[in-house]
Write a protein that binds this DNA or RNA. Sequence first.
DNA 1: GCTGAATAGTTGCAATTGCAACAATTATAG
DNA 2: CTATAATTGTTGCAATTGCAACTATTCAGC
Lengths: 156, 156
Amino acid sequence: MSTARTAPLILEDFLPYRLSVLSNTISSAIAGAYASRFGLTVAEWRIIAVLGRFPGISAREVAEKTAMDKVAVSRAVGRLRAADYVNHAVASDDRRRSVLELSARGRDLLGQVAPMARAYEAKLLDGLSGEDRQHLERALSNLLDRAQKIGPLSGN
Amino acid sequence: MSTARTAPLILEDFLPYRLSVLSNTISSAIAGAYASRFGLTVAEWRIIAVLGRFPGISAREVAEKTAMDKVAVSRAVGRLRAADYVNHAVASDDRRRSVLELSARGRDLLGQVAPMARAYEAKLLDGLSGEDRQHLERALSNLLDRAQKIGPLSGN
DNA sequence: GCTGAATAGTTGCAATTGCAACAATTATAG
DNA sequence: CTATAATTGTTGCAATTGCAACTATTCAGC
């Protein structure tokens, strides 16, 4: 009875594993390109992208929108400020809050990097029909919702 | 002409970003559970899973099958040996090669963890129809193929 | 207004990781 | 057979990360 031999769990069919391999493969490819071309980490690039879209937000909001840790944001922003890609100010109505935005240099960088990112994404998606892509997007949204709801894997 | 303002790149729609967030969310959930229940890292768990399926393979083969770095494998195997989840021997025909397999304790652990992993996966996939799942699987395979072929993000 | 709780961001430290160098062994070329 | 190259696995070191503690500031209750 007890240890009823379950089938041995095929790692390469296990969804979390497949997602991890896929995501790591893609991220490494991208990270390598950003690093060699611009000396940027993926975290830095994400911050640039999000500041391009939401100029003036605080570090905390950046962390929210990029799904990064606030420490990671703090350090990445530090580097970006040092490299003059990002301007930093203190909110006048709350002097704890930072007000971040791209500098001219940062906007310029975004202008270069964004097309590369898009092109890479396009290459990836090239094999999927428009319908497939919609399916995929809905599936990913669905999975993320569930993963967030399920949370820390309630156990037995 | 020059800096033709491209649309500002919506991070939350960018496939690599979405995959990364999803994968990290899932991995953290799983990692937390393994850590608190069994003191296992995800890397260790992966090795256990793959050794359950392919007893007797070498460290290099484990690295291949788990998509881990060989150093990570070496260290994780070290911990697993110390905890007596994995047995280690040297191949008689090639004394560089290690021969790894689960110990009785390791098989027992796999017997406990595998159902949890399956249950989590099932919860995740609960919102997708059978058809959706097939779509998803094909899409993921397709994307991984392409990502591997495209490689380090050529050209600018 | 004052005190204690809450929030934003930074810093220090410990643990993890990644890469290069290394030792041991086996394969290959001549 | 010998010398060189290639492969397997481990170790050392530097860089990254993650967590907790900390500072500065604002908010909430009285």
